[in-house]
């Protein structure tokens, strides 16, 4: 039962967290996955396969944009080009709004739960 609630709650805040990580600098998908893991103390393991669809949706909504890096010649092997995501102006404003909303909701939830 816990799994179901955990998944739903994570999904609710994932857009916000992805936007926040991208507000720091452009990143590619796997980098975001790793940072979410590290910064959440391994709590945000996206085993439900949710990150990539979120990135596509955020891009469709104009909150992020993507660009492919050049292929790099490494000493050992050729590095494939990577798809980097950058937050847009609308993405920054959305992040501000969602963060404020999160603050409001979590305060309300706390008040209900702990009085």
């Amino acid at each position: 039962m816990n799994d179901k609630y955990e998944t739903q709650m994570k999904k609710g805040v994932l857009d916000m967290l992805v936007l926040k990580l991208l507000a720091e600098e452009p990143k590619y998908g796997y980098q975001i996955i790793n940072e979410l893991l590290e910064k959440s103390g391994e709590h945000f393991l996206l085993k439900e396969g949710t990150l990539y669809p979120i990135l596509y949706r955020l891009e469709d909504d104009g909150l992020v944009r993507s660009s492919w890096s050049e292929a790099e010649e490494n000493t050992s092997r050729k590095k494939l080009p990577r798809k980097y995501y950058t937050i847009t102006e609308s993405g920054l404003s959305a992040l501000e709004e969602i963060s404020a909303l999160w603050e409001e909701i979590s305060n309300s939830v706390r008040r209900i739960l702990y009085g």
Partner: peptide, 19 residues
Amino acid sequence: VTKMGRPEEIAEEFNRSFS
């Protein structure tokens, strides 16, 4: 696979997100 998800799950999430 652990970090990105099982292929079936990734595909399912994608399919759910398509317009």
